[in-house]
């Protein structure tokens, strides 16, 4: 685990305050720690409000953590500025959920490559640049002739998302933050984009943080899974262990809800619908206590810590305390 650890997140916390006066706290990310190793694809899985996107933005230096550290190759990234930050962006890149909002509608798609060469790859001359861009587009299975010179609205979502992937990959990043990058794409093109991530990892040893709400996509592409609920990690570890032997009641319920073609649903056991969660960020116990079918008294008061219950499989639930 220690050798080749690329990114280490330590006790990361991000608190948002709503309103200046009489606002309340949202602990979007609350004391989260994990590592990503070289060449590893890690799925960060959670529903809306789990804090998964916030973690992605924190790692991309788009937000500043309230507390805790993010170490990339043993270097704290929070103080990065100017040239150091540019160097960081050569190693760590991101692709976001909505391809159309990720590009400026006024510029041709070439612009997303231009700004990279202007700011991060200044030494590359024009000729070399064109070769690099065309290769990058071919790498994501696009024909440069059909893409370059077009405006974003002339491309489909799938094509545009590939362009943005090509943009990130042109830098040969060591870590890619992929935030819900296929959730707005059609099923028929989705898997192609996922395969690209896998191929790039195989070819260049790139690590990927794959942020998703879709469990089967996470299972398909990743080596490790991190399951989050309301800003905290509830379970993480080896993808097969987490999915085939889910320990946390939340993970179990999530897996039950996946409309997987292999299982038949019985519409008898009703899943507990969400309830009022007033003060969820203020309670001292487990945040899942509002919905947990197996809660006991201690869950209200004490927050369970992540425990390694078997090798490479952690869970934060009082049921597994020894």
């Amino acid at each position: 685990m220690k050798n080749g650890s690329m990114l280490r997140v330590e006790n990361l916390t991000k608190v948002f305050n709503t309103g200046f006066i009489k606002g309340f706290e949202i602990r979007a990310v609350d004391d989260v720690s994990f590592t990503i190793n070289k060449g590893e694809i890690v799925s960060l899985i959670g529903e809306s409000g789990s804090g998964k996107t916030t973690i992605g933005k924190l790692i991309l230096h788009l937000l500043t953590p309230t507390s805790g550290r993010i170490l990339f190759k043993n270097r704290d990234i929070s103080k990065l500025k100017g040239a150091d930050l540019k160097a960081y962006y050569q190693d760590v890149q991101g692709v976001f959920q909505d391809p159309f909002s990720s590009v400026n509608p006024l510029h041709r798609v070439d612009h997303v490559f231009d700004i990279i060469f202007e700011n991060l790859l200044k030494d590359v001359d024009e000729k070399e640049k064109n070769v690099l861009v065309e290769d990058a587009l071919r790498n994501v299975k696009l024909n440069p002739k059909n893409i370059l010179g077009k405006y974003p609205h002339q491309l489909s979502g799938g094509q545009l998302q590939r362009v943005l992937l090509a943009r990130a990959l042109i830098l040969r990043p060591q870590l890619l933050i992929a935030d819900e990058i296929v959730s707005m794409l059609d099923a028929s093109v989705r898997i192609g984009v996922l395969n690209l991530l896998g191929e790039f990892r195989d070819k260049y040893g790139m690590s990927v943080l794959f942020i998703t709400h879709d469990l089967s996509l996470g299972y398909y592409i990743s080596d490790k899974a991190i399951i989050m609920y309301r800003g905290r990690i509830v379970e993480m570890g080896d993808i097969k262990k987490v999915f085939h032997n889910p320990l946390h009641p939340y993970t179990q319920m999530l897996l039950q809800s996946v409309p997987d073609l292999n299982v038949k649903w019985e519409f008898k056991k009703r899943i507990e619908p969400e309830k009022e969660e007033k003060g969820i960020y203020a309670i001292s116990g487990c945040r899942y206590v509002f919905r947990c079918p197996r809660k006991v008294e201690i869950c209200q008061k004490d927050r369970p810590e992540l425990l390694e219950v078997e090798k490479n499989h952690w869970v934060a639930c009082h049921m597994y305390k020894r």
């Binding site: 933005k57 991309l60 230096h61 788009l62 930050l85 540019k86 962006y89 890149q93 991101g94 976001f96 959920q97 909505d98 909002s101 990720s102 590009v103 400026n104 509608p105 006024l106 997303v112 700004i115 990279i116 202007e118 700011n119 991060l120 943005l164």
Partner: peptide, 26 residues
């Protein structure tokens, strides 16, 4: 809050340039 501002940031663009080249034209 649009994604292209974030994309410009992770492309290493300076803030003043983002203002002038990405936000203002829109």
């Amino acid at each position: 809050r649009r994604g292209f501002v974030e994309l410009a940031k992770i492309s290493g663009m300076r803030e003043s340039k983002i203002l002038l080249k990405e936000i203002l034209p829109n």
